[in-house]
Nucleic acid binder design. Structure first.
Lengths: 208, 208
DNA sequence: ATTATTATTAAACAGCGTTTAAAAACTAAA
DNA sequence: TTTAGTTTTTAAACGCTGTTTAATAATAAT
């Protein structure tokens, strides 16, 4: 067996472990994932995992950050809208929310995973909660542009981006954990979220 | 030993277990809590726990809902402000955020606890995420009043309450998980959150 | 065919939540 | 005080978990 073939084989088993883990998570939830369950379904011994991954947490991390990357890709492809930056921002959030809901089990993993000390250091949480990230930057830019164009209220664009992002995060958690939420309810929530973010709830007198 | 004394003794041990669990959680985090660790520190055998509680989850539930109740008490004591309902709402959120941060480890427990299937059914999550709850009702009332007074934009008050609540939830998670967040940063975030909720980010033309 | 390298595993360790059945402690009655 | 009944507590085990160690099996290079 050639060197490349060997490396290929390695990669194959690695992926086998990863996809099996993903299947278990999306079928039975994160808390149902165990090394022994993975290796039993692929007919290997539990120990083999540790020759392909550091530990169980690395597997979860990889799955979660993979799903998360898909969202970020979606978001980064949003068209710039120079005239109406609010449309652009709206699209960012719609993609974020829809993306997060489309891999909700992995997203739950990211939230629920008990050993949070490890996850806290991952790209995922840096992206998801921490302040500096490509997405926040993208949002900040759009908001800054809106302010420049006189369409948005003047202020700290990055701070605004952070609030909008974390608020959407809260909304996503609500939707994910709510058992029997209908498509209609979901859409109403998202719509109202955007409405409040843009317009607030207060009636204001005319702006300059 | 009298009957009452006996019942009193039972209550004492129950509380001993509970407070020990609380200490472990606030010292080492939720994921560090184990029945064996509790019983070792109070010099009992692990089995004793199951004569005072259904299972480990009941203990966590009790601790979390206790902390949560403290928040709700805080919130329910907010003074009604008929002239400026926005002041009232602001106070609700300030109390919510400060309360949640003051028992952040229990709040983390509520979020992170792996066996979420159980927690999902608890009062805690019903309060925290689900739509109908005393707090949402309280908020809805205040918003409705604001709409009636012509101070808030017309619309579905309960939906608005839900969005504001879940958004605050997201913000709280951000603050809790952010490692080295300064008091100043925290206050800026909270301030900006309220600002956006009330005013949005869009510059609007004069309202009717 | 022998050596070296890599892949895989059996077995064990230390921990977990929980259950069962027995023991210990205590109360009430004889 | 002794006996019987009740409550409290535990030792031991079950079946699970993630992970490590050392040995084995399989492959590659010499």
């Amino acid at each position: 067996m050639s060197k490349e073939r060997q490396a290929h084989k390695r990669e194959e088993i690695r992926n086998l472990i990863l996809t099996t883990a993903r299947e278990i998570i999306s079928r039975d939830g994160v808390q149902a994932l165990s090394i022994r369950k993975i290796t039993k379904t692929i007919d290997y011994s539990p120990a083999i995992v540790y020759h392909y991954f550091k530990d169980k947490n690395e597997i979860i991390e990889l799955l979660v950050s993979d799903g998360y990357k898909r969202i970020l890709d979606l978001i980064s492809k949003v068209n710039k809208n120079e005239d109406e930056p609010e449309k652009e921002i709206e699209e960012v959030f719609l993609n974020y929310i829809e993306g997060a809901l489309s891999f909700s089990e992995e997203y739950k993993a990211f939230i629920l995973n008990g050993d949070s000390e490890v996850l806290k250091k991952t790209t995922v949480l840096k992206e998801g909660i921490s302040k500096i990230s490509p997405t926040i930057k993208l949002l900040t830019d759009a908001i800054q542009r809106g302010i420049g164009k006189g369409r948005f209220m003047p202020g700290n664009a990055e701070l605004t981006a952070q609030i909008m992002w974390t608020s959407a995060f809260g909304l996503i958690i609500k939707i994910i954990f709510e058992k029997n939420i209908s498509e209609q309810q979901k859409n109403r929530l998202i719509e109202q979220y955007l409405k409040i973010m843009f317009n607030g709830i207060l009636i204001r007198k005319e702006e300059k």
